[in-house]
């Protein structure tokens, strides 16, 4: 991390310091100049135009801004951009490879797990991190992994089904509808 020394004064007092940070975002090396207070979510959305990362509450309650920081799901609204200096970041735009949907993305579409789609990026990234660590989770493990991702449309039923389908496991949720 390099600091840009800018000693120019403005009428509002000294200008806040600027810092140069290096991020690897979806495999792309990115260098960004930020202020100390820059949040990762805003750098991704506003500087890098990766608007798949959503803002829903900005307080770490909804998970819409979930990204993988060195493989670990975090709320990008609660991470200073400077804290991510030197890190590897995966956003939803980096999940599909060469235009091919990731297996999770495909099961989300197949299982009707997407309604308004606003929680979907964060939901898929939480699920992706889970399956990387635990390829055959139980249904309670799936639910626990996405409990920090609020969805207002689906009741999570089909989301759990989609993650289970990607992990090729049977769940109680997959039985819903069979009573028909």
């Amino acid at each position: 991390m390099e600091t840009i020394d800018d000693t120019r004064k403005t009428t509002a007092g000294p200008k806040p310091k600027r810092y140069v940070i290096d991020l690897t975002v979806n495999g792309d090396p990115r260098t960004v100049v930020v202020k100390g207070n820059a949040l990762l979510v805003n750098v991704l959305r506003d500087e890098l135009d990766l608007t798949g990362t959503k803002k829903g509450c900005e307080l770490g309650d909804c998970g819409s801004c979930t990204v993988l920081l060195d493989g670990i799901p975090v709320d990008a609204c609660l991470v200073l951009a400077l804290e991510a200096d030197g890190c590897d970041i995966v956003t939803i735009e980096g999940v599909a490879a060469h235009g091919e949907l990731d297996r999770l993305q495909a099961t989300f579409v197949d299982k009707a797990a997407v309604q308004c789609g606003y929680c979907t990026p964060g939901m898929i990234l939480s699920a992706k991190a889970l399956l990387t660590k635990n390829p055959h989770p139980t249904e309670p493990e799936i639910r626990a992994a996405i409990a920090g991702n609020l969805c207002r449309c689906t009741g999570y039923v089909n989301i759990v089904k989609a993650i289970a389908a990607a992990a090729e496991i049977e769940t109680a949720a997959t039985e819903s509808g069979e009573a028909r």
Partner: peptide, 9 residues
């Protein structure tokens, strides 16, 4: 569906 799962939406 595709646009929404890829973040393109």
């Amino acid at each position: 569906g595709r646009e929404k799962v890829t973040g393109a939406a």
